[in-house]
Design a protein around this nucleic acid. Structure first.
Length: 179
DNA sequence: TTAATGATGGGCT
DNA sequence: GCCCATCATTAAA
């Protein structure tokens, strides 16, 4: 099985397409000699002009990474306890991103990763990784070359606006946070 | 079984 | 001061 780092061009595709295409890809993080990895099984798209998107009301110190180049990690802290991981899409100045909601453990993971806060806890992802380039280095997303089966779509979780949009995507896995 | 709630703190309409 | 792209625990049924 050939594994290859996803290039920046991948993240320049339409955001909702990136959200679908990230399913089955591998989140890979080398942390001090140890490798943590997992297959992405659930994502959500967040678009410019989408009221549920952090960047919809303009740039702030927190969301500025979303306005930067594609293929970088946007990590934010929420509810006083948890971090969430996004992959920034679109060129600089266009703030869109894909939230990684759940992964299936492959390597180095001890606990459950069936939720955005939980997967960040298990991977040890925090705001120090905010702005990291996901196309090179120790924290990347790999194309596994694996075929993905049926892709399901559903409303996004935990938001108040635009709840009628089916911009959450997932594949068959026991690690999907909610069906 | 499902539904409601408390924890906890940074960002900001 | 209020809101929040969550989770674990408790309460209700």
């Amino acid at each position: 099985m050939k594994q290859k780092i996803l290039a920046q061009e991948f993240y320049l595709q339409p955001t909702l397409k990136v959200a679908r295409e990230l399913l089955g890809k591998i989140l890979w993080y080398r942390k001090g000699g140890k490798v943590l990895s997992g297959k992405i099984v659930e994502t959500e798209g967040y678009l410019r002009n989408d009221p549920a998107c952090h960047a919809s009301r303009g740039m702030t110190p927190r969301n500025s990474v979303m306005f930067g180049p594609a293929g970088h990690a946007y990590v934010y802290f929420i509810y006083g306890l948890y971090n969430c991981l996004n992959a920034v899409t679109q060129k600089e100045g266009i703030a869109e991103a894909v939230l990684i909601r759940a992964v299936e453990p492959i390597e180095g993971i001890k606990g459950k990763t069936n939720g955005p806060g939980k997967l960040c806890r298990e991977f040890g992802i925090d705001r120090k990784l905010n702005g990291t380039d996901l196309t090179q280095g120790n924290f990347v997303i790999l194309d596994s070359g694996e075929e993905v089966g049926k892709i399901y779509r559903a409303p996004r979780i935990g938001i108040r606006e635009n709840t009628d949009k089916l911009w959450r995507y997932y594949i068959d896995s026991e690690f999907v946070s909610k069906k």
